[in-house]
Design a protein around this nucleic acid. Structure first.
Lengths: 182, 182
DNA sequence: TACTACATGTAAACGGTTACATGATTGC
DNA sequence: GCAATCATGTAACCGTTTACATGTAGTA
């Protein structure tokens, strides 16, 4: 079995909720877990094929007039067990995240203080944009999904994003202060 | 030129400080930027070769009795310019970080509340371990490097790590509370 | 005796994105 | 007429890690 690749479980988890096509899976990811998880078609379609090979899902083809066939994937009982099995396991490694801004800050001495501050200001702006998006998603969830049994868990992933981004913005502000007093 | 690979600039940045061998570069990374940046030998050695090819660095071989030759790399004037050039550019994309814990939380409805809490408790423990390491590094920096001209910038990268980890621990505690009241 | 530190390097595999191919329908 | 949406899929490439090969010297 693969060492790091969690695409299989990502797809199984979505199929637990309802049968989906590859295209719908991509769209669903885009509107729900995008802020901490992404999958490209280059991963999704081959993985769906694997799921069928391993009998964790079944396909049935829906013919639609004037459009390409829809290949709808449905999770099997085996698939459900495999998914729950993964879900119950504690996570092993927390991989580090390469952060280019921090790399530049680490080498900050080779620029002027002003240049460093400018860099951090631009980073803060990006963080504020991300926070906006998260807040919009939160409003959407509250207004449209608050009766969904998954609601609380979806909100937890959102509030994680908000916490981290807010902490990052605070760090930007503190850092700008520190550099300004140099 | 490559689209995403920043290994070249990472190495140039270290060589700006002093000439180093591939082995020393690896060790230096381990003790300074490890918490937000990693490079493996499989990246370092081929990249050093490229730096020499592009005349951004030069090698000279030091023969040591009883040990393999040391290949010491020194940055060239061209290399310094290339490095500063990269350093001045604002960062473009902020890639999202795949977070397996959040993926599991997102699918939390398929487990019991207790199982989710347990998962988050274990995650918090890992975060506390990371915080410990960061604090130790901070003490080391303060006691041994506080007169280094890079000190303030090194501290900024450390405090970034501390902020994010603390925010994550806080999120864990809040989430455990929310789930306990379900 | 075995492990760690020193030191260099490569090949294979893995995980992932991007670009491309194909083509109908709907809305501006 | 053009862009977007629906829909499937692959090939090429990129970035990275892991495992291996090689060998000495010191230490527990």
């Amino acid at each position: 079995m693969s060492r790091e690749n969690k695409t299989m479980y990502t797809l199984l988890g979505l199929l637990m909720y309802s049968p989906l096509t590859g295209y719908e899976i991509k769209r669903t990811i885009e509107s729900s877990i995008k802020h901490f998880w992404q999958e490209s078609y280059g991963q999704i379609y081959p993985t769906l094929k694997k799921l069928v090979d391993q009998e964790l899902a079944v396909v049935h083809i829906e013919k639609v007039e004037g459009k390409p066939d829809r290949k709808v994937y449905t999770i099997t009982e085996q698939g459900r067990q495999e998914f729950i099995n993964w879900l119950e396991k504690p996570i092993e490694k927390i991989p580090i995240h390469k952060n280019e801004l921090l790399l530049k800050v680490f080498y900050g001495q080779y620029l002027t203080v002003e240049q460093n501050i400018e860099q951090i200001i631009q980073y803060r702006q990006k963080m504020e944009d991300i926070l906006q998006t998260l807040n919009t998603t939160e409003q959407f969830l509250i207004s449209r999904k608050k009766d969904d049994p998954h609601f609380d868990y979806w909100m937890l992933t959102l509030s994680h994003g908000q916490s981290i981004v807010k902490a990052t913005i605070q760090w930007c502000e503190d850092s700008i202060d520190i550099l300004s007093n140099k």
